[in-house]
């Protein structure tokens, strides 16, 4: 066999590849839930309910947080630590506001008499899916918080910017996941 020096390596940083693979597992997790949802959606016991519009407001907030992240990250790329700090802090606060909004949304549901327990599966799934998303979001907030802390202390150097970028990918993915979830849940209430 002749020596072939071809390099077939994937041109991604290993850590970034790990992150994408991790996102694939998360996608499979929610794909599992979605397929369970769809199976039960067509049973005779299925009932719909109306999702409080607060959740759509939350969606907007979360989308905005992705924008602020991106803005901050652009600042960082242009060597503007101030813009990074501001962007990250905005993202962090919007994330926290989103979580508070979610809790308020759940409370509204409870007030309307929609509980996790019981036979109203659309509601049960709603709690399970949004709850799991919130758990993931807390992990995202920890990542964002870490980088905000570093940014505030001017510690984001060239090496660290990889981590910053990965945290960004994760945050955008959580955002995308949420948009998927809310659209999926809403569409299934309408149809």
């Amino acid at each position: 066999m002749a020596t072939s020096l071809t390099r077939t390596q994937v041109r991604l940083h290993p850590k970034e590849l790990i992150l994408w693979l991790y996102l694939a597992t998360t996608a499979m997790l929610f794909a599992g839930f979605s397929s369970a949802y769809l199976v039960q959606r067509f049973s005779e016991y299925w009932k719909t309910f109306s999702i409080p519009s607060l959740f759509w407001l939350n969606t907007a907030i979360l989308l905005l947080s992705s924008v602020t992240w991106h803005w901050g990250y652009q600042g960082h790329r242009r060597g503007n630590p101030w813009q990074l700090q501001l962007g990250l802090m905005a993202t962090l606060s919007l994330g926290v506001i989103f979580l508070i909004g979610q809790v308020m949304g759940w409370q509204m549901l409870v007030k309307q008499g929609f509980f996790l327990a019981g036979n109203h599966k659309a509601v049960s799934y709603f709690y399970v899916l949004t709850g799991l998303h919130a758990v993931h979001l807390v992990a995202g907030l920890i990542a964002v918080g870490y980088w905000t802390y570093k940014a505030l202390r001017y510690q984001v150097d060239a090496q660290g910017s990889l981590g910053l970028r990965l945290a960004g990918i994760f945050w955008h993915a959580l955002d995308g996941l949420w948009v998927y979830l809310i659209v999926f849940l809403q569409v299934n209430q309408l149809l």
Binding site: L21, A24, T25, M28, L29, A31, G32, F33, S35
Partner: peptide
């Protein structure tokens, strides 16, 4: 990676 997450679900 593809099969464990649905089981966790």
């Amino acid at each position: 990676l593809l099969s464990f997450p649905p089981a966790v679900a």
